[in-house]
Every structure is written in structure tokens, then in C-alpha cells.
Design a protein around this nucleic acid. Structure first.
Lengths: 215, 215
DNA sequence: CGGTCATGTAAGGACCCTTCACATGAGGGT
DNA sequence: ACCCTCATGTGAAGGGTCCTTACATGACCG
């Protein structure tokens, strides 16, 4: 039986693993991935400092689990935005870029654990797989987008996916979050990313990507 | 008088501040920005744990100083690559993108301190200024590049600079370093970034950006 | 009802950060 | 040339946090 977040705290707490993950997210959100300790997560969950060791070998394994869950949510968010490329791949691509930023902004703790915590993808196979699956959404989107182009001009879909990922991550990482690391901008991060993606797609030769600009 | 790295260690060490910065860089390179302590830097420099307090108020101030120096070197590296846009802005832009990646790869400790250490730019005015100056190189490059376009089609140079910065940072951050955080790629990070920049510039309408795809 | 094992606890050792009083020697003023 | 001053480094100690090893509890199963 799994309890909800307000469940009764049994002698054995019942669902300490979940509580630890939530504690880690809370602490990462407050103080960044560096300023979070195993013992403090235990304290936040109301158990002794040694209890977490029954569920995670060490701090890194907890972080890796948080990152894995983050990638799973991330994949779901991107998929929900992509919606199989409907109504058309270009509009869906635009939505997906926004979803990327939304995730970075609304789930900064997950995002930090995924990309900024210094966790090697090789920490656990599950983590690597989750990351692969999240990127696979972008890759499939790029494939469908590229398929709308004349065959002789098609760029490699993998490369397109990587470019979009890099641009999205760069914008999110440099300008996306509202916290201290943010730099002042004359435009919103969303608009910046959308404009960048459109310019990039126009550079690929997508006819619909910049129609309003080509006088 | 300033000693080189192998200088004689006087009773007062002579240039402890520099030694601490080098120690910080070494430790960051080895264990990431998180796994580095004030006391360990002192040990690495061969002094007592209290000595660093004569030069830096706390650990964050040391990190901020490392980041500031990193931004200064970064600015110099970008400027050296840009070379006032010679022989033509497009080729110079390409060089600058490569210089960005080279810096991230060859100076991972500086890069970590600058972008991944969680140091707020507001920690010190000098840090913020150094960051501004580094970006100013990209901004000026974008301005010169944009100036080669027909006036009615010119995009905002600031936006272009931000796009290039975001793309470069994204590539460097996700695929740039050879360490554990790297993901396997079918192409080098340099080629990925170069291709992305060219596609982007072509999307801006730069006439020369499409044809040349040479190594 | 009793055994076994997962789960949580308690105490101990280690490290780190920071601060104090004190030691050292480089450099300036005379 | 000499002494004084002050920046720089030392040593030790307090306070705190963290990580880990030996022990206790009770949930589940035959």
C-alpha cells in the first residue's frame, strides 16, 4: 500500500523513499544541487541521519534517482507538447520548445538534478535510459519535421534534434530560471527561444518557418 | 616581485593568493565545483587552514574571483578569435564559436566556476562586469555581422548574440567536455556547433552562410 | 505463535569552518 | 644602518555537520 503525501507516519514511516525524493527536490530547489546533504534530507523527512542508507547507497544514488524521475517527467512533458506533430510539425515543434522551457522553469529542482548536478549518466543504466528516451522525443520530432522537406535537402534528423536540444538547454540554462543566476534580458526566454528556433528552421530551408520575414 | 609556479616558498609564501586560485582550479577540475573546500585549497598550497582568510572572506569569494579571472580569459580568447572580424565577419564568427568550445574544453575548471558553480553574478561587481565584457565580444561580433545585411532585413544584434551564446553554451554544456557528463555523439562538438551556427546564420538571411561546409 | 529480515536508531569518529592570540619578516621613515 | 609597523602566516580550540558501524524494533510469513 502506498500512502499519499499526508499519510500517517508509522513506526517505520512506510514510504521513506518517496519522502526522501521529495525532500531532495525541496532542498535542491532552495539551495541548488550542491547545497543539499544526505543528512539534511533525512532530517527534513523526520528520520534519523542513517535511515536513508537503507534506501540509497549514497548521496549520488539519491540524486541519480531524482534525475531519472526528472527525465521521465520531462519525456512526458515533451510528448504532451509534441502530440505526434499535430496539427503540423512546425507548430508542434514550437510547442515543444516552449514545453522545454516551461519544464526548466516550473521544475527547476528536477532540471538541476538532470543537467547541473554533475551526475554521470553512467551512474545507473536506468538514468541513462531515461535520458535517452527524453531525447528520443526531440529526435522523433526532428525526423517528422525533416520529412516535410524535399528529399535532396534533408539534413540529418539527429543533428537537428541535437541543435534544438542545445539551443533550448542554453537558453534555459543561461536565462531561463528566475533565480540568482539569471541575467537581465530585453525579451523573455520563451520569445528568445522561439525566435531562435524559427531562424534555425528557416536556415534549414523549411518553407513555412519564416514566411512573414521574407519580403 | 611575483614568482613563477615553482618559486621558492618563503616563510610568507610570497604569493599565496595566486597559489590559492591555482589550487581552486586544480580541485575544481578534479572533483567539480562542489567538491572543493577552503581547507583543502590551503592544504594543497602548503599553508595552514587559516591562511586563506587573509586573502578571501570565504569560500564563495574565492570562487567568485576564479570566475572573474575565467571571464577575463574568456573575453581575451573570444577577442583573439574574433580579430575585429577579419578577414570577413562570417569566417571570424566561425572562429569565435570554435574558440568558445575550445575554452570550455581546455579550461573546464574556469568554465565550471563561471557557469556551473552557482555563483550569483551579484556576488561582486567585478564578476558581473567581467561577465558583461565577455558577452560584449559576442554582441559586437553580432553587430558587425548584422551590418553586412541589407538594412531592412537586419535582426536585432543583441538577439543574435544571445542566440549564438545560448547555442554555444548548450553544445559546450551538453557535449563539450570529455569528462563523465559527456554523451556520445556521431560528430564532434565543434562540428555540431559550426553546423548549427551556419544554419542559424543562413536563417537570418546571410547570403554567404550556406555554401561553405569545409573543414 | 515464533522466527527472520527489512527498516530505523543511537553513538562515535572524522572533517570542515571559523576565530582567536601569537609569530615572523618585509619595507619605510629617519 | 637601524627600528618600527603592519601585512601575512601559524597553531590550537570551539562549534557544527556529516558519514558510518553496532544495535534495536516490529512487520510479515509459515
Amino acid at each position: 500500500m502506498t500512502w499519499g503525501k499526508g499519510g500517517p507516519r508509522g513506526y517505520h514511516h512506510g514510504n521513506l523513499k518517496e519522502a526522501l525524493v521529495r525532500a531532495a527536490l525541496e532542498l535542491i530547489a532552495q539551495k541548488g544541487p550542491a547545497g543539499f546533504t544526505f543528512a539534511e534530507a533525512a532530517r527534513w523527512a523526520g528520520v534519523s541521519p542513517a535511515a536513508p542508507y537503507r534506501h540509497f547507497r549514497d548521496r549520488d544514488e539519491l540524486l541519480a534517482d531524482v534525475a531519472r524521475r526528472g527525465f521521465e517527467r520531462f519525456e512526458a512533458a515533451l510528448n504532451a507538447a509534441w502530440q505526434d506533430g499535430t496539427p503540423d510539425p512546425l507548430a508542434a515543434f514550437d510547442r515543444t520548445g516552449k514545453a522545454y522551457l516551461d519544464f526548466a522553469r516550473n521544475e527547476p529542482a528536477y532540471y538541476s538534478a538532470m543537467f547541473e548536478a554533475g551526475i554521470a549518466p553512467t551512474t545507473s543504466p536506468e538514468l541513462a535510459q531515461a535520458g535517452e528516451r527524453a531525447f528520443a522525443v526531440l529526435r522523433r520530432a526532428a525526423e517528422m519535421l525533416v520529412a516535410t522537406m524535399p528529399q535532396k535537402d534533408r539534413p540529418p534528423a539527429l543533428m537537428v534534434g541535437l541543435h534544438i536540444w542545445a539551443l533550448s538547454h542554453g537558453v534555459a540554462s543561461l536565462f531561463g530560471r528566475g533565480d540568482a543566476a539569471r541575467r537581465t534580458l530585453p525579451m523573455s526566454a520563451e520569445d528568445l527561444l522561439e525566435a531562435g528556433v524559427l531562424i534555425y528552421l528557416r536556415g534549414l530551408g523549411l518553407p513555412a518557418a519564416g514566411a512573414e520575414r521574407s519580403a
